[in-house]
């Protein structure tokens, strides 16, 4: 099997539910190959974030199989940004640097295309939500993962930042042959990620017992 056709993640008949509540999804199956993007959409409460947490083992599955075919160290996850305050006084540069076992050069950080030079010394606790989000994405890209799971990464970002993020992710996926699972509220954004192979998954409302549709473009 060539590297291109060896899956990064296979999910078979996955079901998960709100603890003590209704099923959010039943019998969900999909495979993600290198350089492939799984685009997940759905209404609020349809279980998009829970799906990512279930894949990562942070939420219990009701049934089914989840198999990652890459080492855990090569999987990166960015949850929705909460109001994150970090107790230890640090700059955006510090937060990016500690993600790696070695100290990255400034050039390396800037080459991610997500952070500008004058933002590096900004205190983490004083940075805007958008700056924090881009710094967190830069941390992820510098670790060169094979699979990235992003939960609504465009929240808190203005148009310029959104374009920066899209361009950085495109370049990164191209260079590293990585795959991406992206949760989004915004339809149409996926068109910006061409020419990557795109799968889209729409999760239904939990009250409708999650009708699923999956298309491969």
């Amino acid at each position: 099997m060539s590297d291109e056709s060896r899956p990064v993640l296979t999910v078979e008949n996955l079901s998960y539910r709100i603890p003590g509540g209704p099923f959010l999804a039943q019998g969900l199956s999909f495979t993600i190959l290198p350089r492939e993007i799984l685009w997940i959409t759905g209404a609020n409460g349809s279980g998009k974030s829970t799906l990512l947490k279930t894949l990562l083992g942070q939420h219990p599955k009701a049934s089914g199989k989840i198999n990652f075919h890459v080492p855990t160290a090569e999987i990166e996850y960015l949850p929705q940004l909460q109001n994150l305050h970090f107790h230890i006084p640090s700059t955006l540069r510090d937060i990016i640097e500690v993600a790696l076992s070695r100290r990255p050069s400034e050039q390396e950080i800037l080459e991610t295309g997500l952070i500008e030079e004058e933002q590096l010394e900004r205190p983490w606790n004083g940075a805007s939500g958008g700056e924090k989000k881009r710094a967190l994405l830069a941390r992820i890209l510098l670790r060169k993962p094979k699979l990235i799971l992003l939960d609504e990464p465009m929240n808190h970002l203005d148009l310029k930042s959104k374009l920066q993020v899209l361009s950085s992710l495109r370049k990164f996926l191209e260079r590293n042959e990585s795959s991406l699972i992206w949760i989004s509220h915004t339809d149409g954004m996926e068109d910006e990620m061409q020419p990557f192979r795109l799968k889209s998954l729409h999760l239904g409302s939990p009250l409708e017992v999650a009708p699923l549709e999956m298309t491969i473009e």
Binding site: H87, I88, P89, S90, D94
Partner: peptide
């Protein structure tokens, strides 16, 4: 020490 020093934003992680 960490609580009182945590009130400043500048020192940086190692210095903290």
């Amino acid at each position: 020490p960490t609580t009182v020093l945590g009130t400043v934003t500048q020192p940086g992680i190692r210095l903290h």
